[in-house]
Computed example of a mutant assay.
Amino acid sequence: MKTIGVIGGMSWESSAEYYRLLNRYAKARRGGHHNAPSLMVTVDFAPVEANQRAGDWHALGVQMADAAQQLERGGADIVLLATNTMHRVYEAIEAAIAVPFLHIADPTGEALRAAGIERVGLLGTRYTMEQSFYAGRLRDRFGLDTLIPDDEGRAQVHRIIYDELCHGIIESPSRQIYQNVIEDLKARGAQAVILGCTEITLLIRQEDSVLPVFDTTALHVQHAVDWAIEAVS
């Protein structure tokens, strides 16, 4: 099995989930005492979050590219970025390394198309929901029509991510807010919902949603493990 490199720390709560799922899925695929050979570079989220708020995506691209190069030098055969929002700078990462970079939206887009979904709700940070880097990729590569919550819904979804989930705080009232947002997306025609922030999986499971849930974290991990196994077969 090839070695999976992960850029983590944004937040470390979701990075821990990545590590758990990588090894759980590798064990499910390979059995016995197997786990996923992996490397992780964990960045400090505080300056990352500050640069996000300032809109300094160039600086963030430089930082993510440097982290990817560290992984490549350490022996990673493929690189994952354990966050949806920071895929805003995926081009800087791809340009910096020779090994493959797995974009988080692609396994999700493939899974949605395989399920026959054409219109999907997207939950994530404001950056992911409001900027074009994510929904645009889903549209251009997979022909998906993406719906996002209204202004108040986006504000609530974003606040809960940064003020609660990134700190490992899981609150029932926040789950209800997300459920209300998902119900509104369904009423507007969404056939499914993307958990488009890696922390949302800590709060929302399939049983919490009136729509089919597509968890970007789980789909990203599964695709990476499948690649790492099949690349040596």
Rank of each mutant, 00 (worst) to 15 (best):
L147Q: 06
Q179G: 11
A111V: 07
I161M: 13
D145H: 15
A111T: 08
L102E: 05
A114Q: 13
E72A: 12
H103E: 01
V181M: 14
A95R: 15
I194K: 13
I117S: 04
T83C: 15
T125P: 15
E183K: 13
G116W: 02
Q70R: 14
K186M: 08
T108W: 09
P107E: 02
D151F: 12
F133Y: 15
A190C: 07
E152V: 13
H103I: 00
F133I: 13
D77Q: 09
I160D: 01
M129W: 10
E130H: 11
S172G: 02
R175N: 05
R113E: 03
V193C: 13
Q176F: 11
R154M: 15
C166T: 03
D150I: 15
A96M: 13
P100Q: 01
L102W: 12
L71G: 09
H87E: 04
V157G: 03
D150V: 12
E91F: 03
A98S: 12
Y134H: 02
R137L: 14
D77C: 00
G74R: 09
T128S: 11
Q70A: 13
E91L: 09
V193A: 03
F133N: 08
T85E: 00
T83S: 04
L123Y: 05
A96P: 12
R154N: 09
I194N: 08
I170E: 06
L138K: 03
L80Q: 10
G109C: 00
M86Q: 05
G143H: 01
L81W: 03
E94K: 11
L80T: 04
R88K: 15
I169T: 03
A187E: 09
P107C: 06
G121F: 09
E94G: 00
A96C: 07
H167Y: 06
A114H: 12
I194W: 10
G168H: 04
T125H: 12
G116T: 01
H158G: 03
